[in-house]
Design a protein around this nucleic acid. Structure first.
Length: 260
DNA sequence: CTTAATGTTCCCCA
DNA sequence: TTGGGGAACATTAA
């Protein structure tokens, strides 16, 4: 479900309901979503007041009056205001007004107290300057697809938006970053920003079951130009979209429009 | 039955 | 330190 635009949409939908609320109690039920001592974590958050909710990379950062909680949605995580509890509910926050429910069938998501890995995230794609991005990008010898997926290089892009941004920039997913000209790297920078901005405006991509904090679907999937379009004609040149595997992830691109 | 799915970490090896 | 490749985590849908 969740790359930067989806997480941003969840944060925006959930924040007004949570800011200023007091967590009366919490209940965590999964040894995967909440590794370690779940009872202790529940005690840690109980009684605390939520100062604000924001996004960092693909993490939802819930700042409390003391400390913070980081929620990562993994592949299938959902954070729902006044959501109904079901068979895949692994976290329930009872607030002084309403509840917050965490659902996650695959349990790849995490709810953690001040996790260190948030410090290892790279810059935000919508905040880094063009100069800094190009300098970082051109110093790497990795394939662009893998590099852009790397959260310590840039925080927030995932499989869908990397494929879409590379198509928009006309860059082949297997191109080597350091061998791409400054001009094309600059074009990639703009493509990333435009793709993410448009996706946020459309409230994210609901390709299977993604919904925001109020249960609303996004509709950026309508505008996908390569992701999930294997064999279908490129919107630009008509060549069938190709699918290969890079870093164990399905990778979609136009073999004619995207140069190495 | 097999494959793939919006993600991340860990391990091995160059 | 960088980077490629593979396995693992748990579940569902096609």
């Amino acid at each position: 479900m969740p790359e930067l635009p989806e997480v941003e949409t969840v944060v925006r939908s959930v924040a007004p309901h949570l800011a200023g609320r007091r967590i009366v109690s919490a209940d965590f039920r999964s040894r995967f979503v909440t590794p370690g001592n779940r009872k202790k974590l529940a005690q840690q958050v109980a009684g605390r007041t939520i100062a604000n909710v924001r996004r960092r990379g693909k993490f939802i950062v819930v700042t409390l009056d003391e400390g913070f909680l980081a929620i990562h949605l993994g592949m299938t995580g959902r954070l729902l205001i006044d959501g109904r509890e079901g068979g895949h509910t692994h976290g329930v926050f009872t607030l002084d007004r309403g509840t917050l429910v965490y659902d996650d069938p695959r349990q790849f998501g995490r709810i953690e107290w001040s996790p260190k890995r948030i410090d290892r995230l790279g810059p935000e794609p919508l905040e880094i300057s063009l100069e800094d991005f190009v300098a970082r990008f051109r110093s790497r010898k990795a394939q662009v697809k893998s590099l852009l997926m790397n959260q310590s290089f840039l925080a927030g892009l995932g499989n869908i938006y990397v494929d879409e941004a590379l198509f928009a920039a006309g860059i082949h997913p297997l191109a080597i970053a350091s061998r791409i000209s400054t001009g094309r790297a600059a074009k990639l920078y703009e493509a990333i920003r435009e793709t993410l901005t448009a996706a946020i405006e459309h409230r994210g991509s609901s390709i299977s079951d993604y919904v925001d904090g109020e249960g609303n679907r996004g509709f950026f999937q309508i505008l996908h130009r390569v992701y999930g379009r294997e064999g279908e004609p490129c919107f630009h040149c008509g060549t069938p979209i190709k699918r290969i595997v890079v870093g164990q992830r399905g990778t979609h691109f136009c073999p004619k429009c995207q140069k190495r």
